[in-house]
Design a protein around this nucleic acid. Structure first.
Lengths: 224, 224
DNA sequence: ACCTGAACACCGTTCAAGT
DNA sequence: ACCTGAACACCGTTCAAGT
């Protein structure tokens, strides 16, 4: 967070990088035009020369994160292509969990996002999905990837590191206070539901369930 | 939006109802302590007698929506129980799409949410899912139901009804400008990806895919 | 017990002005 | 071309005071 100040010190790329740092450190709601300006030792209004408004800045942050997405190999069959695409999306988002909603919002504005989706829609069509169904499945895939990352158990407590343990403890106590005879499963699951015990497994399983569901649909269409 | 004003006109139930109306009409970001106060012809600070802060008010709104959830019949087998539970969740949320995140946040604070989850975890355990996996699946189900509703194609444009058509048209134009030879599937899918052509089908398919994925897991566990 | 009034530290953004 | 300064219409919230 060093304060850089010189003539023409502000350009969109630098601003977006700084903004992403702030989002990572303080969450999406923690990003403020004034904070970005301060980080550059500049007046808030200086940013309005480079971006039309805050919305445009957020979109640019989304674009920046999306750009590191990779398109799975064209030759892969539907099942593996879908798994690879979702894994790639999840990986990109896990690098900047707070920016997830921006990624979901901007993915179609990026060439890599369009290419990935076009190929996916094509494979779905070949597997027998009609246009409406393919569109829905592509939409589910994107949104589920985002949800997995941005709502990973315990992720909502990523900020205010002092409070984090306190909030965790409060949730734990709340579940522990439930009557054992009525909520035995909930009590046993408490720890796992509050904080993800194995994040890699959490993502792999989430993706696997969705992929299996889509493939069940594909099989049903194949024999119809 | 009539202005009610009398001695002791403010009580938590009335305030929550009003707040939910505002959320429905203007979205979650449109809900403001000051707006709620205005609706009652009262000073913003009056609300702080009944709620600790805005967060507590939002939680109460979430509780109110959750309360209309119903627990599926205990006797149902896993597959049907899961489908019923997600359908019930989706129905409750579709009544107040902007309040979805509050529902997801508060569901475990409500008896009906805990009962629904306890039974689901029990059925998963009987089907062979270990604690960690059951917890993850319960979490996926909740979050996916929420995502289906709050990110239904076109839902993000639910407010500012004047701008709505303009934004839709801008998105449509953006996809229509893509080269036909390179993005044929994307162009064909444009309408369906921008605005949901059949919402009931969209939800039924989304739920069906997740249920099928979980059942594939269950079968794999059964024969292991 | 329940609400008001004034104040504080924040927001995004406009518009005119400086260099 | 790029940035500043002052101002506006908002936020959530504290704290002391009224009834």
């Amino acid at each position: 967070m060093s304060t850089v100040k010189s003539k023409n010190s502000l350009n969109p790329t630098l601003v977006v990088d700084r903004a992403l740092e702030i989002v990572d450190a303080e969450g999406l709601d923690g990003l403020t035009v004034r904070k970005v300006a301060d980080a550059f030792g500049v007046t808030p209004m200086a940013l309005y020369w480079h971006f039309a408004n805050k919305e445009a800045l957020l979109a640019a942050v989304g674009d920046a994160v999306v750009s590191s997405l990779r398109v799975p190999d064209e030759g892969l069959p539907l099942e593996h292509y879908l798994r690879e695409a979702m894994t790639s999306l999840v990986d990109v988002m896990r690098a900047h969990p707070s920016a997830c909603p921006l990624v979901a919002q901007q993915i179609m504005q990026a060439e890599v996002g369009r290419d990935l989706t076009e190929r996916f829609l094509d494979k779905l069509a070949i597997a027998g999905f009609d246009v409406e169904r393919s569109s829905a499945v592509a939409h589910y895939a994107m949104q589920i990837a985002m949800t997995l990352v941005s709502r990973e158990p315990g992720a909502e407590l990523a900020f205010k590191p002092e409070d984090r343990e306190a909030v965790l403890e409060r949730k734990r106590a709340s579940l522990a206070s439930l009557p054992e005879d009525r909520y035995p499963r909930l009590r046993a699951a408490a720890d796992a539901m509050i904080e993800c015990p194995n994040t890699d497994e959490y993502y792999a399983d989430g993706i696997a369930i969705f992929v299996a569901g889509v493939m069940a649909d594909a099989r049903a269409l194949a024999q119809a």
